[in-house]
Design a protein around this nucleic acid. Structure first.
Lengths: 166, 166
DNA sequence: GCTAAACCGACCGCGGTGGTAGGATTTAGG
DNA sequence: CCTAAATCCTACCACCGCGGTCGGTTTAGC
């Protein structure tokens, strides 16, 4: 299990917001009901998205949440990062705000820690996959629209169980 | 934290075995000392690698472990899979031995679950990164050899802290 | 001023992670 | 044979993050 359910819930929430008309607030309760998720827990999840600036909110009656940007300008790596914190394949990966990746191991033990090379590649693979996907794509997908070629390979759709039911 | 320390320890162990002459057993104690890892815990880790057929063992005095194949024929996705179990980005991903990926959610709720598309891409990104790396590469790297271009991008080496100390 | 909603912080059971302990079994060497 | 060195095996445990709940406070529409 790479990601926790915070990511699952949060992504679903974002998709749900993406299906609504922008600037029109959607109550969390509506989303909780639609997706069958606990409201109180969703509050914590959406709070992370708000703090990351991905959604905006209005308080009071008829308040709710909406996307701060059009869905096609939100890449999923921002979303997942907001929900899960920094994407670190291994504990010793503590990446600060820059591109630098630090390792807690003794850096000068002659040979550099070789596992780092591996985890760096994995991290790159994950982040690239996330960056290549926009929220708009997922919204389209959830509406049952067959995706155009764009970044989606045949293997994707097959593995996602969309293609022929074999 | 994507992977647990089992993966970290296991990969280090494999690298250590890759530096030894093949068929010549290396005692776990030696590796534990070299890497500063608890012996008893390493036993559990190496057991997974053995059950996966990646290492062989000899019991008794002067026994130990060695790679069952040359290091350049071992791709890291086998290693990580043996250590961590199946690489699943999300709980609902229960991939069996085939290429199929199943999802526990209601499959016929009209719209298919869109998050699955995302997690499938991420899973692909991870597995591709792991497959593209062989144990032999890591062994070379640990010996301080500058890697040739091969599958390693400039960004990899920079992020791994190998390049200029800027 | 009532009600619906966002916001906030404290709490809590459970399971997995990262070990430890203690033994049983196998084998090389004297 | 006997002992030491090693693999192997099973049970146990402390800690902590995850998923979730609860109660309350604030804000805003009617």
């Amino acid at each position: 299990m790479i990601f926790s359910s915070k990511a699952e819930y949060g992504v679903r929430l974002m998709i749900e917001l993406g299906r609504q008309t922008p600037e029109h607030p959607t109550a969390l309760k509506a989303i909780a009901d639609a997706e069958g998720l606990p409201l109180a827990y969703l509050e914590q999840v959406v709070a992370r998205l708000r703090r990351a600036g991905l959604v905006r909110s209005a308080r009071g009656a008829h308040g709710g949440y909406w996307l701060s940007r059009p869905a096609d300008q939100i890449s999923m790596d921002e979303v997942v990062q907001a929900l899960e914190g920094s994407i670190a394949p291994m504990e010793c990966f503590v990446s600060d705000h820059t591109e630098r990746v630090l390792c807690s191991h003794e850096p000068d033990a002659g040979r550099g820690c070789a596992t780092k090379l591996l985890w760096t590649r994995v991290q790159g693979g994950i982040i690239r996959s996330l960056q290549a996907t926009t929220l708009a794509e997922l919204v389209q997908f959830s509406d049952g629209v067959a995706l155009p070629i764009a970044a989606s390979t045949a293997r994707d759709t097959v593995a996602a169980g969309v293609a022929p039911t074999t």
